[in-house]
Simulated scan of single mutants.
Amino acid sequence: MGKIVISSNVTLDGVVQDPDGQEGFERGGWFHQFVGSKDLEDWVARETEEAVGVEAILLGGRTNEWFADRMTARNEAEGRVSPEWAERVRSLPKYVVSSTLEDPQWSNVTVLGGDAVKEISELKRKVDGEILVYGSYQLMRTLIEQNLADELRLVVFPVVVGTGLRLFDETSDTKPLHLVNTRQLGDGLVFYNYEFARG
């Protein structure tokens, strides 16, 4: 049985929108604005360790495009992505939830184009191990709302942006979680690891 793990970068006030500033959000770009080199080094090490420990990646359509564009040898050579992390992400089976995607643009991609809840439930039965969800905030909200997410991993950045898309804007019910782990990354980031409580 698979375990769906949501992994996200988030501001102190819960904003997940436009961390790299590429979407044009007026308060975007907070990922690189508020971290030092030690923060980034520890973030990359944690991200790589996480990717090595999973069996598959689950993405929404736009996040799939973002990753496919950035997981190139050129970006690796220019130091924009960690080579070990990029190689692992490229090699993993990837499942993309999209009703319009025809050309995934990179390898090992299976498009889930039908009923998302049904197909992801089937994916959990099929994959033995962790299924990692990056970005894909609409998908993350669906997973949380439908009780398909098993674990939540957040890296909190030391900034309040005041407005923007948040991971937990609305849910139809209370979602209790249990704290599994917390640790500091570098000098300013904090990693939180929760499991969703069941029953």
Rank of each mutant, 00 (worst) to 15 (best):
P19R: 09
E122I: 05
E49V: 01
T63L: 06
K175M: 08
S37N: 01
Q184F: 06
Y137R: 03
E47C: 03
D42Q: 07
V117P: 05
T110N: 09
W66I: 13
R27W: 06
R74H: 02
S99P: 02
V180A: 02
T171R: 12
E41T: 13
Q138T: 15
W43K: 01
W30L: 08
M71I: 06
G61M: 10
L165Q: 10
M71E: 07
T182N: 07
G53E: 02
P93R: 08
F196T: 06
D128T: 08
E41K: 12
F191N: 05
T11L: 09
D150P: 05
L58P: 00
H32I: 09
A56K: 03
L148V: 02
E26K: 14
Q17A: 08
E50G: 04
V133M: 00
D128E: 13
V5Y: 01
L143V: 01
I4E: 03
T110A: 13
M71G: 08
P93Y: 04
D18S: 02
T142R: 10
D42H: 10
I6T: 02
P176Y: 08
E50D: 06
S98R: 08
A51H: 03
K126N: 15
E50F: 02
Y95W: 11
T171D: 05
W85H: 12
G14T: 07
L58A: 12
D173E: 10
S99K: 15
P83F: 06
E102P: 07
F191S: 08
G21I: 05
G135M: 04
K38Q: 14
E78K: 01
D69V: 06
Q146E: 15
W43Q: 04
D115K: 09
G36I: 10
D69L: 09
V161S: 03
L59C: 05
R141P: 06
V117R: 13
E76W: 00
